[in-house]
């Protein structure tokens, strides 16, 4: 099972890094969501995986039965999920506002503060050097 979760986390990280390297900031946002999912899963898995035994104390007992799931990472992940949502919501509004003001979702055309110095054709989107290399 550990291998399963580890592969899941790896797949999520791969997809999110690939998305965050994209030029569209909307894709970047998708990458952010996947990354926070990956991070949550990672913390959860790193605390040990215990199938189908939630950390609950039965009525009348003073301690949970032996072998329940680790409660601590669950609490941490719960907090992380909510904070991840806060980050996501703010980033989404920021992207929306950026689109309103700049009229684009392409991070390479968002050059209001640092306009390219000697760009011969500033309107056409340029190939990134990495993309050029890959051709």
């Amino acid at each position: 099972m550990e291998v399963f979760v580890a592969i899941m986390v790896g797949a999520l990280v791969t997809a999110s890094v690939y998305l965050m390297l994209a030029r569209s900031v909307l894709r970047f946002l998708f990458g952010l969501v996947l990354l926070s999912n990956a991070a949550n899963l990672l913390i959860f898995a790193a605390g040990g995986l215990t199938p189908e035994a939630p950390p609950l104390v039965a009525e009348g007992a003073y301690a949970p039965p032996e072998g329940v799931a680790n409660a601590l990472p669950q609490a941490l992940v719960l907090t992380a999920i909510v904070i991840g949502f806060g980050l996501f919501a703010f980033a989404l509004v920021l992207i929306y506002r950026g689109y309103q003001n700049l009229g684009t979702l392409d991070s390479e055309q968002m050059r209001l503060a640092e306009p390219p110095e000697s760009d011969p054709q500033p309107s056409t989107p340029q190939m990134s050097p990495m993309a050029e290399l890959s051709k």
Binding site: A6, V9, V13, T14, A15, A45
Partner: peptide, 20 residues
């Protein structure tokens, strides 16, 4: 984007490895 994909796969693979 080949280079981006390569980098992403490397980081994802390393994460899996470290988590294991």
């Amino acid at each position: 984007r080949i280079w981006d994909l390569l980098l992403a796969v490397v980081i994802g693979g390393l994460t899996t490895f470290v988590l294991l």
